[in-house]
Design a protein around this nucleic acid. Sequence first.
DNA 1: CTTCGTAGGAGTACAACGTACGCCTACGAA
DNA 2: TTCGTAGGCGTACGTTGTACTCCTACGAAG
Lengths: 202, 202
Amino acid sequence: MPRKRSLTTDQLAAAALAVVDRDGLAVLTMRTVAQELNMGTMSLYRYVSDREQLERLVVELVLGGVDFTVPDLPTWQERIAALCERIRLAVHAHPAMVPLLLVHRHASPGVRRSGEAMLSVLAGAGFTGERRVIAFRALVSYLIGALQAEGLGPLSGAGTDVLATLGEQYPYLAETAVSARGVTPQREFGEGLALLLRGLTP
Amino acid sequence: MPRKRSLTTDQLAAAALAVVDRDGLAVLTMRTVAQELNMGTMSLYRYVSDREQLERLVVELVLGGVDFTVPDLPTWQERIAALCERIRLAVHAHPAMVPLLLVHRHASPGVRRSGEAMLSVLAGAGFTGERRVIAFRALVSYLIGALQAEGLGPLSGAGTDVLATLGEQYPYLAETAVSARGVTPQREFGEGLALLLRGLTP
DNA sequence: CTTCGTAGGAGTACAACGTACGCCTACGAA
DNA sequence: TTCGTAGGCGTACGTTGTACTCCTACGAAG
């Protein structure tokens, strides 16, 4: 066996994530990542076969830091909420990569582990068969949507101010946007999830 | 005023949507759309300033067909559900363009109109201030996540079969995937939304 | 210590993309 | 009939992902 690899896939993923964190998802390029590592562009292809695979590595790096062991809490609702909050926190640290989560949610072990953890809680709570399917999908849909909305949403963030200004055309939207200023992303996420959990029954 | 335009923006959007419906979002290109219209590539720039604007036109075309007048139904929950179902139906007809919905959800009149309609229902139901913010965001998050999940999700569609096969590593995921086979996207969407609505109280 | 084969690193090159620029020309107003 | 404006489009450039090919560093074998 000649020559040892000078890079681990983790280092590669970390470099890509650094680029995304610093300059945004739009500049995530084989060339920019290679520059970040002081390597030739084509050298990256010794570690990944694709740009897609590079993106998957980023997703795995972010989700890899999440603890998916089911927390020891009194109610299953709290267990679900704690799991979701862990995910939200991990993603919140790298908001620019959220779109990657959605694109690669298929073939990502991290996403699967998270699903497995949530399902085990639901199963323990007594959800079976199609009820469990519905409940799980509802949770995942909310999670995905909320993460996506957090960084870019029209209510929190920069979009809020824009919406607040066109009050005559969309009065409710404008009024709600003003109220939204006092709501942190964390509260928004947590209390929205709580609403969903209230409606869930095995 | 010399020369009349030979194209309406609707026709342009329709051509782009046709390309997306037929060959997928990946081949949506200024060149492919131009070919679809038997025009030169650069001619499109007489109608849109950007590729982004072209994508926005597609979003508007899809959402433009949705009726956002609040339906006359007994409960506000049913009114919300009906609005969401209308959106789901419109999007369901063009599943490949869902990612565009998310990217352009900011500057899209259609998205704003939908938000305004939902908020008016919530307001009529007695939601005010931050409670309305939370409720609205929860609904939007679910809607976005569910639409996204519908076409590509790991539970319905092709991903289901894959998941069902790796049972030893993700037992719950595999079992749930099998149960998911009997659940149509429509039921999944509607019943998941019902769960969320059950937890909503002004 | 020398030698050798394997695999890592990188330069070149190409197709496809978005789009700036500038030309030609069709057509409504005069 | 003429003219200026604006529609249509060909060309070309920078950027992207990546196939191909070469050179070379290095662990194992002698």
